[in-house]
């Protein structure tokens, strides 16, 4: 059953009381909230997601609610609760929906060490995946949103779940977090995409979330082996340029973008070297989304014989 098949009243009741069990990629999150912006955000951006039985197992029990003190009314705040406890400081009430999104990211980065988790966007086309690690401000989410709007399948705009056992990346398609100017860029680039309410003045500036395409959500249980690791960098007015990156350098950059490489120890090293071995690695700078997408569409998958030295 998909979330959109719930009536407004059923959705409200579930979110306010027993909790809504949302399947997001390999995880089931039980979410509770009685905050209107959160309920609306979920209704709008998670409409196509499967919902699960209340009696089953849930990976994360989370709640977004106002604190039980004066800050409920006076300059209101909002708390993210995991297992009824708050791992973070409260944030302004207006940011309730982004708080849910950040909280869910936190859950995965804390409790999914059966994967090697990296901070990067992942998209897929014709069975080939691109992993795009990049620091904030490099246009990673914008490029990811642009690719997804042009038919690439969204795995995630934030999180790589790489299984050391299978050597595959699991999708965890969630709304894409767009920041500041990117929101307008994507609105004009792809007027048909659904973008939720903007929250101003967050730690990252203005934030709005773009709904994941329904095909990406429906295929969320289909992991794929990685094909390319590409480090994108937006440069105003620059023409698109794809430059091969030595594997050693690409490996070191990936370590910087990992959540649990150190924690996994030897297993982390073996997983990451395995990932880099099968991928072609590039640095990529671009000035326009159309050009960038043309370059991605023309990517040739690496030949099957491994070229470890590259």
């Amino acid at each position: 059953m998909e979330l959109s098949s719930l009536t407004q009243c059923e959705l409200n009741t579930q979110l306010r009381h027993q909790g809504l069990r949302l399947r997001i990629g390999p995880f089931i999150a039980q979410i509770r909230s009685s905050i209107p912006s959160v309920i609306n955000g979920i209704q709008q951006l998670y409409a196509d997601y499967p919902i699960e039985q209340e009696s089953g197992f849930a990976d994360f029990h989370v709640e977004v609610s106002p604190p039980r003190n004066l800050r409920r009314w006076f300059r209101p705040q909002v708390l993210f609760l995991f297992d009824h406890k708050s791992p973070f400081k409260p944030l302004p009430y207006e940011q309730a929906f982004p708080v849910l999104e950040w909280g869910l990211n936190w859950c995965v980065s804390q409790f999914a060490h059966n994967y090697l988790t990296l901070h990067a966007a992942v998209v897929e086309k014709d069975g080939h995946t691109v992993i795009m690690p990049a620091p904030p401000g490099s246009g990673k989410s914008t490029l990811c949103a642009g690719l997804v709007a042009r038919g690439w399948r969204l795995f995630s705009d934030e999180l790589v779940l790489f299984s050391p056992k299978t050597g595959e990346v699991s999708p965890i398609p969630r709304p894409i977090s767009l920041k500041n100017e990117s929101i307008e860029v994507i609105r004009s680039f792809a007027p048909e995409v659904v973008i939720g309410r903007s929250s101003a003045d967050t730690a990252k500036g203005t934030v709005a979330h773009m709904k994941a395409p329904i095909e990406s959500v429906r295929q969320a249980m289909m992991p794929v082996a990685p094909t390319w690791v590409i480090y994108p960098r937006f440069e105003a007015h620059a023409s698109a340029q794809l430059i091969s990156k030595p594997k050693g350098a690409a490996f070191m950059r990936l370590i910087e973008n990992s959540f649990n490489y150190t924690l996994l120890g030897l297993q982390g090293f073996e997983a990451l070297t395995g990932l880099i071995d099968v991928c072609d690695c590039y640095d990529f700078s671009y000035g326009s989304l159309d050009e960038a997408i043309a370059v991605f569409d023309a990517l040739e998958p690496p030949s099957t014989s491994l070229n470890i030295c590259n």
Binding site: F80, P87, K89, L91, W102, W106, S109, P136, A203, K204
Partner: peptide, 11 residues
């Protein structure tokens, strides 16, 4: 941590 990753500050 805030700059690096998309999570709010911890307590």
């Amino acid at each position: 941590a805030d700059v690096l990753k998309d999570v709010p500050p911890e307590n």
